[in-house]
Design a protein around this nucleic acid. Structure first.
Lengths: 222, 222
DNA sequence: GTAAAAACCTTAAAAGAATTGGGGTTTCGC
DNA sequence: GCGAAACCCCAATTCTTTTAAGGTTTTTAC
């Protein structure tokens, strides 16, 4: 009987126990599934480093947000994912995230390219089992809401560069136009130009920023 | 007991009988599944138009290639998909295609945005059942190889415009550089410039076209 | 309602990127 | 070795984007 080793990292103790409970009860070929857990970036890092010299994990489940959003912590799940990719490139990485907004999903799929991505509201025993089996046999596994976001992106004929995406993102989280200069390496009039250009792309000419943001959301950019 | 109506269009009579056989045996809630079939663009079109005035199909399975590749037929499965979208916008469309190359997959996902896409080698009774259930409950459904292509696209930081894609595509099917002008609205020196630019993007500077094409394939563009 | 702040628009100059034509050299197929 | 195709370089042109400086309109706070 083979052993399938899983590491689950989530800052909520109870959530993680739930994962452990469900994952270890999965029946999958002749695998015996063992789940380790951690609740912090540091804890997860240690577990991975320890594993380097003995067994290596087959799968790592990673919560994207490893602490409440208000705390300005330096390292989140995305960083741990990137670290894990370097240390153990063969280990399958599955991200779990409570936000299903397209901007973050797209950005993670681009920066880490995980073997799986699950929006938390899609997670249940069945989808967890499916995720484990899929990433082992024929990755990637994307949960239903993830696929919804991906579909929007793939069917879109508008392509935006990084600056455009940043403008949309910052507008969507309430950054004022005059403060955009602080986050984007462009002059204020360039930013104004780009905003105008974006509004024409999304068919919201002469409308306000809210209309632009809603249109961009519908098209899967934020 | 509700009825789930499916139309399957494939130019190979026997293949289609196989689909019909399998699909009608799917057990799905309290649905009774009925499968109509067609083997040509015209046949499929008629079935859809007939359905307009009675029941409407819940799902249409469409082979992308409705005739041997050498025959220069005007209409293929993609066109039938676009037509179906217009006539019956609520009907779920699932494409089936034997080629799994990223260029075609990406182009279909963009132009028709089907509710499902299956690479033929991924098709078996289990995946067909999964496809039917998924597009009815929470589309989209993408088969395993499709997801592989999508993953490459999503994790890519290179964005190419239509002309670049066309250049890569035509090079990949063996078009000579000097003949590219016939397919692309650019001067020969622009095409040369773009080829140089592409080679630098893909890190194949000073190498030949084969190296470029292989790199572009690896990154999921063709 | 008013005054200040922010958003938005216009214009024109400058910088940057892409296209084009015309020249050339190198590589490939046979 | 020969011819064709591929590739390279350069300079002129055009198209796009950026920028600054000035303005008007809209929004916001009180």
């Amino acid at each position: 009987m083979k052993t399938l080793r899983i590491l689950a990292v989530d800052d909520h103790e109870m959530t993680m126990l739930g994962y452990k409970f469900i994952l270890e009860r999965i029946v999958f070929d002749d695998y015996n599934i063992i789940v380790d857990t951690a609740t912090t970036f540091e804890g997860g890092k240690e577990k991975i480093e320890e594993s380097l010299h003995s067994f290596k994990y087959d799968i790592i489940f990673l919560d994207v947000q490893l602490f409440p959003p208000n705390e300005e912590q330096p390292k989140n799940g995305e960083d741990l994912g990137i670290l894990a990719r370097q240390l153990v490139p063969d280990t399958k990485i599955i991200f779990m995230s409570s936000f299903s907004d397209n901007y973050r999903i797209n950005s993670i799929l681009k920066s880490v390219d995980p073997d799986g991505y699950m929006v938390k509201t899609d997670i249940d025993p069945k989808s967890l089992e499916q995720a484990v089996k899929t990433v082992i046999t024929e990755p990637p596994y994307y949960s239903s809401k993830t696929l919804g976001a991906i579909r929007k992106k793939m069917s879109n004929d508008i392509t935006l560069d990084e600056n455009d995406k940043k403008i949309l993102y910052h507008l969507s989280i309430g950054t004022k136009t005059k403060d955009l200069e602080k986050h984007i390496e462009l002059s204020s009039s360039s930013i104004e130009n780009r905003k105008r250009h974006l509004k024409s792309l999304f068919g919201t000419e002469k409308e306000n920023d809210l209309a632009l943001i809603l249109a961009a959301k519908n098209r899967g950019f934020i």
